[in-house]
Amino acid sequence: MSFDYQKICAALYREARLLDDRQWDEWLACYADDVTYWMPAWDDDDQLTDDHESQISLMYYPDKGGLEDRVFRIKTERSGASTPEPRTSHNVTNVEVLAERAEEVDVRYNFHTLSHRYRVNDQYFGTMFVTLRKAGDDLLIAYKKIVLKNDYIRQVLDVYHV
Score class of each variant (00 low, 15 high):
residue 139 L to V: 06
residue 96 E to K: 14
residue 96 E to N: 11
residue 130 V to A: 04
residue 113 T to P: 04
residue 3 F to S: 03
residue 145 K to H: 09
residue 58 L to R: 14
residue 129 F to C: 13
residue 80 G to V: 13
residue 123 Q to N: 08
residue 2 S to P: 06
residue 59 M to D: 00
residue 96 E to I: 15
residue 23 Q to I: 02
residue 153 I to N: 13
residue 97 V to R: 08
residue 62 P to H: 05
residue 110 N to M: 10
residue 5 Y to E: 15
residue 29 A to F: 00
residue 115 S to G: 01
residue 110 N to W: 13
residue 88 T to E: 05
residue 69 D to L: 14
residue 124 Y to L: 03
residue 92 V to W: 03
residue 37 Y to W: 10
residue 101 R to M: 08
residue 161 H to V: 03
residue 80 G to C: 15
residue 108 R to D: 01
residue 100 E to S: 06
residue 70 R to I: 02
residue 10 A to M: 08
residue 106 D to Y: 08
residue 41 A to N: 09
residue 50 D to Y: 04
residue 121 N to G: 09
residue 85 E to L: 13
residue 116 H to A: 06
residue 44 D to H: 15
residue 98 L to Q: 00
residue 86 P to A: 06
residue 104 E to G: 11
residue 46 D to K: 15
residue 113 T to D: 01
residue 116 H to Q: 09
residue 41 A to W: 09
residue 72 F to K: 13
residue 26 E to V: 08
residue 38 W to R: 02
residue 142 A to M: 09
residue 80 G to R: 15
residue 77 E to T: 10
residue 39 M to A: 07
residue 153 I to F: 14
residue 125 F to E: 00
residue 142 A to S: 15
residue 69 D to P: 05
residue 104 E to L: 10
residue 1 M to Q: 09
residue 133 R to N: 02
residue 23 Q to L: 04
residue 78 R to L: 12
residue 138 D to T: 14
residue 93 T to S: 08
residue 38 W to D: 02
residue 5 Y to D: 13
residue 55 Q to P: 09
residue 127 T to P: 04
residue 20 D to Q: 09
residue 151 D to L: 14
residue 39 M to E: 00
residue 157 L to N: 03
residue 71 V to F: 00
residue 23 Q to F: 05
residue 136 G to Q: 12
residue 146 I to G: 02
residue 151 D to Q: 12
residue 3 F to N: 06
residue 47 Q to F: 10
residue 7 K to A: 07
residue 47 Q to H: 10
residue 99 A to F: 01
residue 22 R to L: 15
residue 85 E to Q: 09
residue 13 Y to W: 04
residue 73 R to V: 03
residue 45 D to W: 14
residue 59 M to T: 03
residue 47 Q to W: 10
residue 156 V to F: 05
residue 147 V to R: 13
residue 21 D to Q: 11
residue 5 Y to S: 13
residue 4 D to H: 07
residue 72 F to N: 14
residue 42 W to I: 14
residue 44 D to W: 11
residue 29 A to G: 06
residue 116 H to D: 07
residue 78 R to T: 06
residue 51 D to K: 05
residue 149 K to Q: 15
residue 155 Q to H: 14
residue 1 M to E: 07
residue 145 K to C: 12
residue 138 D to Q: 10
residue 34 D to G: 09
residue 55 Q to Y: 07
residue 127 T to S: 03
residue 63 D to M: 00
residue 1 M to N: 14
residue 46 D to L: 14
residue 51 D to A: 10
residue 133 R to A: 03
residue 66 G to W: 06
residue 2 S to A: 05
residue 43 D to H: 11
